[in-house]
Design a protein around this nucleic acid. Sequence first.
RNA 1: GCCCCCAUGGUCUAGCGGUCAGGACGCCUGCCUUUCACGCAGGAGAUCACCGGUUCGAAUCCGGUUGGGGGUACCA
Length: 457
Amino acid sequence: MRVRFAPSPTGALHIGGARTALYNWLLARGHGGTFVLRIEDTDRERSTPENVEQILDALSWLNLDWDEGPSFQTERAERHLEVLEQLLADGHAYHSNATAEDVRAFKERYGQERGFRGEPEGSGAIRLRVPDTGETVVDDIIVGRTSFPNAHMDDRVIARADGSVLYNFAVAVDDYDAGITHVVRGIDHLSNTPPQLHVFDALDAAPPRYAHLPLLLGPDGKKLSKRRHAASVQALRASGYLPEAVDNYIALLGAGFAADEEQFSLDELAERFRLNRVSKNPAVFDERKLRHLNGRYLRAMSTDALTERLEEFTGRTGLRPAVEIAAEKIQTLADFWPLVRFLFEGPADDPAAFERVICGDGGVQTLRAAREALSAAEPFTAETIEAALRAVVEARDAKPGKVFQPVRVAIAGTTISPGIFESVTLLGREETLARIDEALTRAGAACGHREPEAGRT
RNA sequence: GCCCCCAUGGUCUAGCGGUCAGGACGCCUGCCUUUCACGCAGGAGAUCACCGGUUCGAAUCCGGUUGGGGGUACCA
């Protein structure tokens, strides 16, 4: 089995493209096949080295490695020319000066259902001759059998007058030369298949099997696009998703596995993947489900491994202690820093939280009591801190939250943080007391003459 | 316009002639609890798009309709 991924380098790798690459990879790895990477760069405007680099980067990030390539379509110009000559010589193709305008006029006259047939001329673009009768059948592994009447199809241009070849021709020749046995790609290519099949016919070669993947849709039900949705692999990476989770989620999306939500490694995925089980329905890419899966991956990771990822993601070091206390709270790598930032850079500024928790409902008195208890805790460990704060709870006959929340807001600035004992432990006595004092001072100025229960803003 | 594809709760899906239509995400409630998450236990949510066949019996088979989507280049 030989499969290929053949993206055109138009910038960041699209999620749909990632899915196509992944499925090809799974197929090859699951069957001891060969995964070929080919860059379709015949569109000279969009194909830049930077764009190619982005594709390769994204594939590497997703841990999808290839066995051959990357090869570039433009580097095969000579071979394309050779095939062109051959087809011209044996009458499968012919020169024609007919323009797109002429084709339109032809349709106008004979109707949409009659395919354009040109007259061979001495020069001009090269068109591939399409049979007048019969039908071209795409026996698709996923979609099933679809047939297209040949009479409807135009004699398509396969090369411009200057000899530069067009996509549908180049693809077929390249797939043929590379000995591709299975073409797995997006269903937007389904209608490109007949013309490619015609090229194989003209070459008197057996075509590969085809499998067209249903589209990936955005939350709005439209085809996932980089313009409308943050739909690139790079965007997912920047959002703090792990490549393992992305691979897993994308594979689950329509791959027809048992429906129960489960974590699969790439190897397990490859083992289970069956092309003929792929769903025919277009699927909506649901980032919330990816978040969930990603969270599971994060939680399954060792602290060391997670710390490494987090330090790489944030570009910071010395994060391990913070990772220990925050790991269970986050679903993406991007969730981490906002949650623990206060440990490194001081309390966050959240006036509403301050107002509500510290100004209101005896917050100031509790904070004073907590300060006193904490300054006496000896040694200053999570255990003694917990004991000290719980003693305050008892002494004031309060609910635990009534004590912990003011402390939390005093040290973190917000009502959301990792566990309070652990956070205080990490900050250390000195810093904790300093922050409580600061909060107390601020309370005197900000809400001194306010009624308790001053309310929320 | 023409060609083509698709159709099970909001989303992803299981199902392959007889099921109380199962699971996951999301949502709601409760438990846990120190906030947020996690975890656990419940719950709401589907006339299986619609209509007509075939059949003793259709989510499952056939046809049509509607809806959604893709393609329609001397782009890829």
